Simulated scan of single mutants.
Amino acid sequence: MDLSICKSSISWEIRDEGGVQRGVEDILVALRTCGIDVPGATHERITDRDGPDRLRLWLPRAATATSAEELFDGS
Results as ranks from 00 to 15, higher is better:
Met1Asp: 05
Met1Val: 06
Asp2Trp: 06
Ser4Glu: 13
Ile5Val: 07
Lys7Ile: 03
Ser8Gln: 02
Ser8Pro: 00
Ser9Trp: 04
Ile10Thr: 11
Ile10Met: 09
Ile10Ala: 09
Ser11Tyr: 15
Trp12Asn: 07
Trp12Tyr: 12
Ile14Arg: 14
Ile14Asp: 02
Ile14Cys: 07
Arg15Met: 09
Arg15Leu: 08
Glu17Lys: 11
Glu17Gln: 09
Gly18Gln: 12
Gly18Ser: 11
Val20Glu: 14
Val20Phe: 03
Gln21Arg: 15
Gly23Ile: 06
Val24Cys: 11
Val24Leu: 07
Val24Phe: 01
Val24Gly: 00
Val24Met: 15
Val24Asp: 00
Leu28Arg: 04
Leu31Lys: 06
Leu31His: 05
Leu31Ile: 07
Leu31Ala: 05
Arg32Glu: 15
Thr33Trp: 00
Cys34Asn: 15
Cys34Lys: 15
Gly35Pro: 01
Gly35Arg: 04
Gly35Leu: 12
Gly35Val: 07
Ile36Trp: 10
Ile36Ala: 10
Val38Lys: 06
Pro39Ala: 08
Pro39Gln: 10
Pro39Tyr: 12
Ala41Asn: 12
Ala41Lys: 14
Thr42His: 14
Thr42Gln: 13
Thr42Glu: 13
His43Cys: 03
His43Lys: 13
Glu44His: 07
Glu44Asp: 13
Arg45Cys: 00
Ile46Asn: 05
Ile46Cys: 04
Asp48Glu: 09
Arg49Ser: 07
Arg49Ile: 00
Gly51Pro: 12
Gly51Asn: 10
Pro52Asn: 11
Asp53Cys: 02
Leu55His: 08
Leu55Val: 04
Arg56Asn: 14
Arg56Tyr: 05
Trp58Thr: 01
Trp58Ile: 03
Pro60Met: 12
Pro60Cys: 08
Arg61Phe: 10
Arg61Cys: 12
Ala62Glu: 10
Ala63Arg: 14
Thr64Phe: 02
Thr64Cys: 10
Ala65Asp: 11
Ala68Tyr: 02
Glu69Arg: 04
Glu69His: 02
Leu71Thr: 02
Leu71His: 05
Phe72His: 05
Phe72Ala: 05
Asp73Leu: 02
Asp73Ser: 03
Gly74Asp: 15
Gly74Ala: 06
Ser75Trp: 13
